[in-house]
Design a protein around this nucleic acid. Structure first.
Length: 324
DNA sequence: TGACAGGGGGTGT
DNA sequence: ACACCCCCTGTC
């Protein structure tokens, strides 16, 4: 088997715009997708005037898997390194949430009586929550405190490159924010497991640009290492119990616990309140000056059992529209 | 072009 | 309320 080769592109039964795909993969749920833009056929033929057209390819890594996604003619396509194909084929649909009917779930949100929510949903048709590996999601959000997405992605890329096992190699012009020249096939690395993180000296962790998060990650790794099965058990618990367990970890407060459960355990009742959601609820729902805890209570009450899904629409809207 | 604030998708005390 | 660590960005 040729380790350098990718499979052919195959269609996925999902219609999304490039914008919604970008928001889904690179909008703060996951920090392990990188975009690569290639000049389009039209452009190379000398098309002038309109927007610079380019074909965007997204490359993502989770657990021991790598996949690429792209949209061509309104259709979503995927492929994987040939050597990983069979594994990726069976896990990609779960990762992308194909086991749930997101349109039906979205329809149960109270958009009929909430004009702003209706507006957010209309602006991001097809938005969904990813179902990422639990432990990796925890690591990602432990890196997230007072950091922007690009910086979080850099930290995780360094952790993977320096401390994560190699998954495989495949040729791709751009990965991890680093341009690779020509025909070289660079290795893909998975993130280190929590067992692996537990034996990495703090100094080496810090060199992955983790800053004051270093201590949190180190202590969390020790905690998990001393409790075999703790992480898997936590993932299986109902939402409230799982959140209480996650809060035992160093560096995991209400917000990060909810992010891990929403994006890494499929708990749609989790309602993370970050600065964007705080702004959204203040500006669009009149909760000016409210603290995160009461805002979270409002969110769960107002949006119901799928509050986390509503949160994702509000979040996407606020990111796009900023102060307006 | 190089320095230099200011601030960043929280948590812990 | 404030420190935590330090990279990035915008500015001069």
């Amino acid at each position: 088997m040729n380790k350098l080769a990718w499979t052919d592109w195959r269609p996925l039964a999902l219609r999304v715009t490039p914008e919604v795909l970008a928001e889904t993969l690179d909008g703060g749920q996951s920090f392990r997708w990188f975009r690569e833009a290639r000049p389009s056929a039209l452009r190379s033929l000398g098309e002038v005037g309109s927007q610079p057209e380019s074909e965007v390819i997204w490359t993502g890594t989770w657990s021991d898997f790598v996949a690429q996604l792209k949209i061509t003619d309104g259709q979503l396509w995927w492929r994987a390194p040939a050597a990983l194909n069979s594994m990726v084929a069976t896990t990609l649909s779960r990762y992308l949430g194909f086991d749930r009917d997101w349109a039906a779930l979205t329809d149960t949100l109270p958009w009929r009586s909430d004009a702003h929510l209706a507006q957010c949903i209309a602006a991001f048709p097809g938005l969904r929550l990813l179902r990422q590996p639990f432990g990796e999601t925890l690591l990602g959000f432990l890196c997230s405190a007072t950091k922007q997405i690009v910086q979080i992605k850099r930290m995780l890329a360094l952790l993977a490159e320096r401390h994560g096992a190699e998954i495989g190699r495949a040729r791709t012009p751009l990965r991890a924010g680093v341009a690779a020249k020509g025909l070289t096939a660079l290795p893909f690395h998975r993130l280190p497991t929590w067992a692996e993180l537990a034996v990495i000296p703090e100094k080496e962790l810090r060199q992955c640009l983790l800053g004051f998060r270093t201590k949190f990650i180190h202590e969390t790794a020790q905690y998990i290492a001393q409790r075999p099965g703790w992480l898997d058990e936590t993932e299986q618990l109902p939402y409230t119990a799982a959140r209480a367990r996650l809060r035992e970890l160093s560096g995991v407060g209400e917000k990060i616990a909810d992010c891990v459960l929403l994006f890494g355990a499929g708990k749609l009742e989790a309602f993370p309140v970050d600065s964007w959601v705080l702004k959204s609820l203040a500006r669009r729902y009149g909760l000016t000056g409210w603290q995160p805890a009461p805002v979270a209570h409002f969110g769960r009450t107002h949006f119901g059992p799928l509050a986390g899904l509503a949160q994702q629409y509000l979040f996407a809207w606020e990111r796009k529209h900023g102060g307006r």
